[in-house]
């Protein structure tokens, strides 16, 4: 793999962090604007892709800890299931925190209840899963370029 041009690498290095901010914005305002858990999580997962373009696989693999994304995914799924089960006295997935419009104070938890919380949980889960898929597939490329090919030199500054 040949390294991309220095412009592409610098822009990816810079904008990776802004993608996190933008993804968190999309994720947290999913109940009022277009967006939500999946979209925000997918945007946050581009952080890893941008880092892979900017720094190359070896440096990213030495810095990034897979356990963090494992933790994201497990916490997201657990919170999602617990929130779903907490509404069980009425039905599964009953929105026990929400208030009707008349007595709603607006905003995050007082208004929409478990919708926003589940959105955050699914966002965490999607972030972890997509980041791990990207990292694993990239590691698979490196593994498979193994003995008979020359070691990876590209993408590293």
């Amino acid at each position: 793999m040949n390294p991309l041009s220095v412009v592409v690498r610098t822009v990816c290095d810079l904008f990776a962090w802004f993608m996190i901010v933008f993804g968190v914005n999309v994720l947290l305002h999913g109940y009022v604007t277009p967006g939500g858990g999946f979209q925000g999580g997918a945007i946050i997962a581009t952080f890893i892709a941008f880092l892979l373009v900017a720094y190359g696989g070896r440096r990213v693999a030495s810095r990034v800890n897979d356990r963090l994304f494992d933790l994201f995914e497990e916490v997201g799924l657990l919170v999602f299931f617990i929130l779903a089960f907490l509404g069980l006295p009425v039905t599964f997935f009953f929105n026990f925190l929400a208030k009707p419009l008349a007595e709603s104070a607006g905003g995050f938890i007082p208004g929409v209840g478990t919708v926003a919380l589940m959105s955050v949980a699914v966002g965490l889960e999607v972030t972890g899963a997509l980041s791990l898929i990207i990292l694993t597939m990239h590691r698979g490329i490196r593994m498979f370029r193994g003995e008979d090919l020359e070691p990876e030199t590209g993408h590293d500054r």
Binding site: G36, F38, L130, I133, M137, G140, I141
Partner: peptide
């Protein structure tokens, strides 16, 4: 929305098998 995410997961699995 659900179908898009499932298609993405399927594509990742497909590309891994192709590798």
């Amino acid at each position: 929305l659900t179908a898009i995410v499932i298609a993405l997961a399927t594509t990742a699995l497909l590309l891994s098998l192709i590798m």
